[in-house]
Write a protein that binds this DNA or RNA. Structure first.
Lengths: 347, 347
DNA sequence: TGTTAGCACTCACATCAGTCGAGTGCTAAT
DNA sequence: ATTAGCACTCGACTGATGTGAGTGCTAACA
C-alpha cells in the first residue's frame, strides 16, 4: 500500500470525501477548485483525481461523472486524514441534557443511550448491554411467594441487574423448602462471578448442604434454567427512522432489506463483537461481514465497567457518513456510559 | 343512510372490494363481469358502478379509471357484507405452534403475540399490555437489599406481574427500617386492588402504624413513585417491516411518516383506547383520529382476564386490508391471550 | 323496462427523440 | 508543472406520441 500520498493529493482526497459526505453527489473537479481554495485550477484537480482513481481511492459511477470515494478512499480518510475524534463541549452539554430524564432502571439507561446516539449522529444506533454472565458477581437468589403453586425467582447481582422469572413450584416442594434451597445456594455462591457458576460448583452445593437429592435436583434445574435463559445477549436498537432521511435509502427495497436485517437480534450481536481494544473501530462498506450492509459502515466502541469490557456502543449508517462526528460521539459515549453504569454497581 | 342496497349491488360492491383488496388496483367493470360470474355483462356492471359511486360507496381516482372503495364502501363491507369472522382450524394450529416457544416471562407472551399477529395478518400489530393499575390486586411490596445505599423495590401483584426498581435508600433509613415499612404497607394494602391505593388509604397507614413521620414520608414517596411510574401503559409493537410490502407504502415519505408516528408510544396508547365492548372494532381511513393514519385502518379487540377488560390487541394496515382475516385472527387472539394470561394469575 | 353491444372518449403510463449541462480527458500553450 | 480550451460522454429532464384499460352514452334488443 502506497500510503505516501503527497500533500496535495491528500488535500484533494479529503476535500472530495468531505464534499461527498455532505452532498451525497459525485464530486467534480470544478467544485473542488471553487469551494476549497487549494489555489489550483479544475484541470489540475482533474489530473490528480485521475491519479487517485488509478490508485484506487476514488471511483467514477460513469464516465464523465464526478468521483465518489471507494472503500479504500474512506479507509484512508478515516485512518490518516481525520483529526483524532474530539467531541465539542456543546455536544457534551446536549447529551448531558438529554440524559437528565430520570433513568433509574438500568434498561432505561440503554434505551436512552440509543436514542441519544441516533439523534446525535442521525443514524441507526445499537448498544450491546452487559450480559449477566459477564464479570458481575452473584449476590443472592431469592424465591418470592406468588401463590401455592408458583413462585418468583429473583436473582440479584452486584450490578443491580436483577432477573426475575415466574416458575411453577415442583410438586412436593413448599415455600419453606425453596427458602432453604435459596439459603444453601446463596451461602455457596454469594460473591462469586456469574460465569464461575458452573456445573461442578453446583455439584458442590449438592454434596455439602442438601442431602435430599430430589429437592436439590429440582431447585438447581430452576437456577440453571434462569441463568441460561438470561445468557442471550440483549441488544438495544434505535433510530431506524433516521435512515429514511438518507438519500441512499430512497429505495423501498433497500429499506426493507436493512430493516428486516435489523430485526434479527442474533445478527446484531454478531456485528457488535467485542474487541478488547479501547479505540473506535470503523468497518466500511464491503469490509462488513454481512452483505446486507455492504453499503453501510459500522462505527463501534466497547465500554468498560471498572476496567472490564462489558458491552459495545455502535452506530450504523451509509458509507457516506460523518465519520468524524460519529467517532467522537462514540468515543465520548464509551466513557460516559461506563461511568453511568458504574453507579449501578456496588461501590 | 340507505343501507338497503339491492342484492345485485351488494354482490358487485363485494366483488369490487374483494378484488381491490387482493390486487390493489382500481377495479374495472370487465374484471368484475369476467372473474366473478354474476351472469351480467360489463355494461350492466358499469351502470351499477355508476350508481354505487353516486351513493358514495365507490370512488374513481380519475375519469376512465376503475373504481376503488370509499370509506363508506369499506364500512358497508365490514358491517354488512363480511361473514362473521371465523378463524380456520389451520390458522389456530399455526398460532398454537408459534406460541409453543417457551414464554415463561409475561413480556415474552406479549412479544410473541405481536409477532404472531403481524405474521398472520401481514401487517403492523400492537398489543396494549395490562397496566398494573388495572384490576389486579396488590400482594406485597418488598425491599431486596442491594448494598448500603441502594435497594430494589419489588411489587408483586396477584397477576404475577411484578415491577422492580432500584432506589437509593434515603439518608437515615436502614434496611430494617425498610422492612418495617414494607410490613406496615403490606398488612394494610395486601389484597387491595391496585387502583384503590389512593392518597387517603396511604394516609391511613401513616396514622395507624408508623408514628415516625419522617421514615414514613420517605417510604411512601417511594411507593408512590414506583406506582405512578409504572402507570404509563406498555405497548408492544411488531411487524413494522410488513408494511413495506404493501404497495401503498412504496413511497419513502409515507413510510417515514408512519414509522415516526409508530415510534411514539403515547400516540399508540391513544389509538388503542379500550372500549368495553367485546366485539372487534374497525376504524377505517379518515375515521381515525390521527391524520397520520388517514389512509390506514385499525382493527382492534379488547381482551379480558376473568371477565375484566385489561388490554387491547390490534392490527394496523392500509385501508385496503384483509378485514375478514384480520378480524377473525383478532377475535381468536382476544380469547386466546386472555386464556394464556390467566395462567399468570392466581388460580 | 332492464340488459347489452358498440363506439367515442379519457387518461395514466410507457417509450422515444431531443436538449441541456455538469463533468471528463486530452492537447497545446504558458 | 500548470492551465486554458475544446471535443466528447452520459445522466437527467422535457415533450410528443402511442397504447390500453376503462368509462359514459346511445341505440338496439329480449
Amino acid at each position: 500500500m502506497e500510503l505516501i500520498l503527497d500533500e496535495r493529493k491528500r488535500q484533494i482526497l479529503q476535500a472530495i470525501i468531505d464534499d461527498y459526505i455532505s452532498t451525497a453527489e459525485p464530486v467534480g473537479s470544478r467544485t473542488i477548485a471553487r469551494k476549497y481554495d487549494l489555489g489550483i485550477s479544475p484541470a489540475t484537480v482533474r489530473n490528480e483525481m485521475a491519479d487517485l482513481e488509478l490508485l484506487g481511492y476514488l471511483e467514477q459511477p460513469h464516465t464523465s461523472s464526478g468521483r465518489i470515494p471507494s472503500v479504500k478512499g474512506y479507509r484512508f480518510y478515516v485512518d490518516c486524514l481525520l483529526a483524532p475524534p474530539q467531541i465539542s463541549d456543546r455536544d457534551i452539554a446536549i447529551i448531558d441534557n438529554w440524559y437528565h430524564t430520570k433513568a433509574r432502571r438500568i434498561e432505561e439507561v440503554f434505551q436512552e443511550t440509543v436514542k441519544i446516539l441516533s439523534r446525535m449522529t442521525r443514524n441507526v444506533s445499537m448498544v450491546l448491554a452487559p450480559q449477566v454472565s459477564q464479570q458481575c458477581t452473584f449476590k443472592y437468589i431469592q424465591f418470592l411467594p406468588l401463590d401455592e403453586r408458583r413462585s418468583i425467582v429473583v436473582i440479584v447481582t452486584d450490578t443491580g441487574l436483577i432477573e426475575n422469572k415466574i416458575i411453577a413450584i415442583p410438586e412436593g416442594l413448599s415455600h419453606e423448602d425453596l427458602g432453604r434451597v435459596a439459603n444453601a445456594i446463596n451461602s455457596h455462591l454469594g460473591g462469586l462471578a456469574i460465569d464461575r457458576i458452573t456445573t461442578p460448583v453446583l455439584k458442590d452445593i449438592q454434596n455439602d448442604i442438601l442431602p435430599d437429592p430430589q429437592v436439590y435436583e429440582r431447585a438447581i434445574t430452576l437456577l440453571r434454567q434462569v441463568l441460561t435463559v438470561d445468557k442471550n445477549e440483549k441488544v438495544y436498537l434505535g433510530g431506524t427512522t433516521q435512515m429514511l432521511n438518507q438519500p441512499e435509502f430512497r429505495d423501498v427495497d433497500k429499506i426493507k432489506g436493512l430493516l428486516t436485517m435489523l430485526e434479527e437480534d442474533r445478527l446484531l450481536c454478531d456485528i457488535l463483537h467485542m474487541s478488547n481494544s479501547d479505540g473506535v473501530i470503523v468497518t466500511i462498506g464491503q469490509e462488513n461481514k454481512y452483505s446486507g450492509i455492504h453499503d453501510c459502515s459500522v462505527v463501534q466502541a466497547t465500554y468498560r465497567i471498572d476496567g472490564q469490557v462489558v458491552g459495545t456502543v455502535a452506530v450504523l449508517g451509509p458509507t457516506r457518513m460523518e465519520y468524524g462526528k460519529t467517532m467522537s460521539v462514540l468515543k465520548f459515549m464509551q466513557r460516559h456510559l461506563g461511568e453511568i453504569l458504574k453507579q449501578y454497581k456496588v461501590l
